[in-house]
């Protein structure tokens, strides 16, 4: 029986050791101090953007999944986006002046597609985030400014949107 146990253990270990990458991706340990929430303890660590554009990493290692299915199957995530530790959030929500930046950086590809198609959920969301009264004119100006948007990088494209928002009187 000892040998059977050993074989089972070794097999699990082999299956799980490849899960290192997925495990490494998870958030850093937060502060236990009530007055210093983990969302505030992370400092500005990037030159531009909120650090959300590249946080989604696919975990498609099949053997890692074997281990994950055994242990993580009941709803445990294979990876997580570190929104709460982004340098644009406080207490786990977007800072008031960073909401647009976070949205644009996180949804760059989808916004780009909606701008090209002339409508879509992400274009509506963008208008919503910037809170323009004249929605129609802001939308038209965004669509007209599509080329400038697509020429920008995800972490700086919000500057283009901000400029268009200012021009649209938002």
């Amino acid at each position: 029986m000892k040998k059977i146990g050993l074989i089972l253990g070794v097999a699990l270990c082999v299956a799980l050791v490849t899960d290192a990458e997925a495990a490494r991706r998870r958030n850093t340990k937060p502060s236990n101090n009530y007055e210093a929430p983990r969302s505030m303890s992370s400092g500005g660590h990037r030159m531009a953007g909120c650090g959300l554009g590249s946080t989604v990493i696919e975990d498609d290692d099949k053997w890692a999944q074997v281990g994950a299915a055994f242990l993580n199957g009941t709803g445990f995530q294979t990876f997580a986006i570190s929104f709460g530790t982004s340098n644009c959030t406080t207490d786990g929500v977007a800072q008031a002046d960073k909401e647009g930046e976070i949205f644009v950086e996180s949804n760059y590809s989808e916004i780009q597609r909606d701008l090209a198609a002339g409508k879509g959920e992400y274009l509506d969301g963008l208008v919503n985030v910037y809170g323009c009264e004249d929605v129609g004119s802001f939308k038209s100006n965004l669509i007209a400014g599509r080329k400038e948007f697509t020429q920008s990088k995800p972490e700086t494209a919000s500057n283009v949107v901000r400029k268009i928002a200012n021009q649209s009187g938002c």
Partner: peptide, 30 residues
């Protein structure tokens, strides 16, 4: 949050409550 724990310690901690769990807010688009 499992940090860099892997292999059998990962199994053991997962089954025995050795990992810390948190509630975290995030926008639906993420």
């Amino acid at each position: 949050e499992t940090g860099s724990v892997v292999g059998l310690p990962y199994v053991w901690k997962g089954l025995t409550g050795g990992f810390s769990g948190y509630f975290a807010a995030a926008p639906f688009y993420l």
